[in-house]
C-alpha cells in the first residue's frame, strides 16, 4: 500500500519539468534534420531578398531589420507544426494529459525545449544573415536581444495554435493562418527595436514591452495550450 501511494504522489514539480525538458531535447538531438529545417529555411528565405530587390547595400540596409524579423517569424511559424505532432501520433501526448503532473509545467517544458532547438538557433543565426543583408553594425546586439525575447514569445503563442491543430491531418497551413495575427504585436515591437538601434535611438521601451509580452505569455499561454491539447486529444 505505501508503495502504491508513493507511485501515485506526483514527483516534485521541478523534477517533472526537467524530465519532460530532457526527453524533448534528447528527441530533438536524435533527429538533427528536424532541428536544421527552420535554420535552412531562414537562410534560403533571406537569400531571396537580394535576388529580388538587388544586391546594392544601400537598398538592402534599410530593409534589413524588417526583413530579418519577418523571416525569423516565418521560420518559427514553420517549426510549430512539429511541436506536438509526434507526441500526438505515438500517444505520449495522451500519457502526458493523464499523468499526475501539473500540465502547466509539462507544457512549459515542451515549449522551452522547442524554443531551445528552434528560436535560439534562429536568434544565433540572425547576425550572420544580418551581415548578408548589410545590416549596419549598430543593429546586431538589438537584433539578437529582440529575437531572443521575440522567439520565446512566438514559441509560447504558437504553441496554442499547434495544440489546437494537432489532431487535424493537414493542420499546417491552418496553423499559420490562426497564429500569424497573434504574432503581429511581437513583430511590431521586435522589428522596431532593430530599426531604432540602427538609427541610434533608445530601445529600452520596446525591449521592455517584449519582455512584458514574454511574461504574459509564460503566465497564460501554457493554460490555453493545456486546454487545447485536451480538446485535440478528445477529438479523436
Amino acid at each position: 500500500m505505501p508503495d502504491a501511494l508513493a507511485a501515485q504522489t506526483p514527483r516534485p514539480v521541478f523534477a517533472a519539468f526537467l524530465a519532460t525538458l530532457r526527453r524533448d531535447l534528447l528527441l530533438a538531438v536524435r533527429l538533427p534534420g528536424d532541428m536544421a529545417n527552420p535554420l535552412v529555411f531562414y537562410l534560403i528565405a533571406i537569400t531571396l531578398i537580394p535576388l529580388s530587390l538587388g544586391p546594392e547595400r544601400e537598398v538592402l540596409a534599410p530593409l534589413a531589420p524588417g526583413v530579418l524579423w519577418v523571416m525569423a517569424l516565418l521560420a518559427t511559424l514553420l517549426s510549430l507544426d512539429g511541436l506536438f505532432r509526434s507526441d500526438f501520433d505515438d500517444g505520449s501526448l495522451e500519457q502526458l494529459l493523464i499523468s499526475p503532473q501539473l500540465l502547466y509545467f509539462s507544457v512549459l517544458a515542451k515549449v522551452l525545449a522547442h524554443w531551445l532547438v528552434t528560436g535560439l538557433p534562429v536568434t544565433l543565426l540572425a547576425p550572420v544573415l544580418g551581415m548578408m543583408l548589410a545590416l549596419p553594425s549598430e543593429g546586431y546586439w538589438a537584433l539578437c536581444l529582440s529575437l531572443l525575447l521575440g522567439t520565446a514569445c512566438m514559441s509560447l503563442v504558437g504553441a496554442m495554435g499547434a495544440a489546437l491543430t494537432v489532431s487535424l491531418r493537414r493542420g499546417g497551413l491552418l496553423l499559420s493562418l490562426i497564429v500569424m495575427p497573434l504574432y503581429i504585436p511581437i513583430l511590431i515591437f521586435g522589428a522596431d527595436v532593430v530599426q531604432n538601434a540602427v538609427l541610434g535611438d533608445p530601445i529600452r521601451f520596446q525591449l521592455a514591452v517584449l519582455g512584458a509580452f514574454v511574461t504574459l505569455a509564460v503566465a497564460l499561454a501554457p493554460l490555453a495550450v493545456a486546454g487545447a491539447l485536451r480538446i485535440s486529444v478528445d477529438a479523436t
Binding site: 489546437l164 491543430t165 493542420g171 491552418l174 490562426i178 495575427p181 487545447a228 485535440s232 477529438a235
Partner: peptide, 23 residues
C-alpha cells in the same frame, strides 16, 4: 477567418466547437 477555418477543419462537431471557442 482563422476561427471560421478552424471550426470547419474538425470532423468532430464537439471538438470544432470547443477549439474555435478557445481560439
Amino acid at each position: 477567418l482563422g476561427i471560421m477555418a478552424l471550426q470547419a477543419a474538425f470532423q468532430s462537431r464537439d471538438a470544432a466547437d470547443k477549439a474555435s471557442a478557445l481560439l
